[in-house]
């Protein structure tokens, strides 16, 4: 049965995505790490769909649609920020920080 290896790989991929978000400062790379986390969850959905029914595969559909929408809007926001600040580093985005 492939369920437990799939869940193990999915857990590691999700953790790597979280580690990437914590590790990087480049907004686009952080965005790619979020996509990695979404994919790890997709793997869980597909693995569990084998024993819990096709609903899991349908949900992968919805996750992909949301990820596509998120990528389009998020990259547009990054473009707008870059036009404003000439940088995509999160270090330079401290408008709401005090002092």
């Amino acid at each position: 049965m492939l369920l437990s290896p799939a869940l193990a790989i999915s857990a590691v991929l999700f953790t790597l995505g979280v580690a990437g978000v914590l590790l990087r400062r480049n907004a686009i790379v952080i965005f790619m790490c979020v996509e990695l986390m979404l994919n790890a969850v997709n793997l869980t959905f597909v693995a569990l769909a084998q024993i819990l029914g096709m609903g899991g595969q349908v949900f992968v559909f919805f996750v992909m649609a949301v990820a596509a929408a998120e990528a389009a809007v998020g990259l547009a926001i990054i473009l707008a920020v870059y036009r404003h600040k000439q940088s995509v580093s999160l270090q330079n985005m401290n408008l709401l920080k005090d002092g």
Binding site: A65, A68, A69, A72, V73, L75, A76, I77, L79, A80
Partner: peptide
């Protein structure tokens, strides 16, 4: 949602 994302991306970019 996808329609909103298309419109939002155009407005933002």
């Amino acid at each position: 949602l996808l329609l909103a994302a298309i419109v939002g991306a155009v407005v933002l970019a």
